[in-house]
């Protein structure tokens, strides 16, 4: 024989609340509310700094310069400022009919994404977002800087430069893969500390000269990697060109 129940009134949902339950709840509910608000504050305030990324999606702008398509569609202004060019959504601009094989002078309309000196233009949705204005004002050849090794994370340029904040890290991995599959530029956020919001550099990643990644390499997106390749500079854009075997996961 055990479990004697006290003679205080029992709680039954459809009957009035007994006094001792009333007192208990009067203390518990405010305490729980405070705990919830405290937890929300702690978690929200503890979030990682997404970095100084900027996406000006509300203001359409125009840029002019030299339009080139290899290794990736980009516009190089006369002062050398280089903008990668992408479409709206998670798509690259390769399919734009106005993109010809040769460098030409062009005017580009769209929205700016920017982070740590790296720039992307998201083309306006209209068909004439790129207008060819004539032959190239100036030829641009990549300036090869020689071989080098970098450590960091492979990101998709558009999200990392401001389309998604944060546009890196594990939670964003599936998005980054989808973006790169859609033709957005794979880039390397060069940093030793994987949480550093201001990477040393943000380089365009090329694999044997091309900005497309094999399924095996896509698995390494958003994870720490070490890349050995040839570094170059095109306008203000830094690139690294590696063979697939020289892109290795870090533990």
């Amino acid at each position: 024989m055990n479990e004697r129940t006290e003679q205080d009134p029992m709680y039954v949902g459809y009957l009035p609340l007994p006094t001792r339950h009333r007192v208990f709840l009067a203390l518990l509910i405010p305490a729980l509310m405070l705990a919830l608000i405290g937890t929300a504050t702690l978690i929200a305030a503890g979030q990682r700094d997404p970095g100084p990324a900027m996406w000006n999606a509300s203001e359409e702008r125009a840029w002019s310069g030299t339009l080139i398509t290899t290794p990736y569609p980009m516009l190089i202004e006369d002062d050398g400022t280089t903008h990668l060019i992408v479409e709206m959504g998670k798509r690259g601009a390769h399919e734009r009919s106005t993109l010809g094989p040769d460098p030409r002078a062009a005017e580009v309309h769209g929205y700016e994404l920017r982070r740590s000196g790296r720039r992307i233009i998201e083309l306006a949705p209209d068909a004439d977002a790129i207008t060819i204005t004539g032959p190239p004002a100036r030829a641009h050849t990549p300036n090869e800087l020689g071989p080098g090794t970098v450590r960091g994370e492979i990101v998709d340029g558009k999200c990392f430069l401001g389309a998604m904040k944060p546009g890196d890290g594990k939670a964003h991995k599936s998005c980054a893969i989808l973006c790169i599959q859609g033709g957005l530029p794979p880039m390397v956020a060069v940093r030793d500390d994987p949480f550093d919001p201001t990477p040393d550099e943000i380089l365009l990643l090329l694999v044997d000269g091309s900005p497309t990644l094999s399924p095996e390499l896509l698995e390494l997106v958003a994870s720490p990697v070490e890349i050995f390749g040839t570094r170059s500079r095109l306008g203000t854009l830094g690139t690294i060109d590696a063979s697939p075997n020289d892109i290795r996961p870090l533990p």
Binding site: G89, S174, I177, L178, Q181, G182, G183, L218, V221
Partner: peptide, 16 residues
């Protein structure tokens, strides 16, 4: 998973 070239469910659950 949205705004991309794949089905959102498949890209989030089978992307990697």
């Amino acid at each position: 998973g949205g705004f991309g070239v794949r089905n959102p469910i498949s890209s989030v659950l089978a992307g990697y």
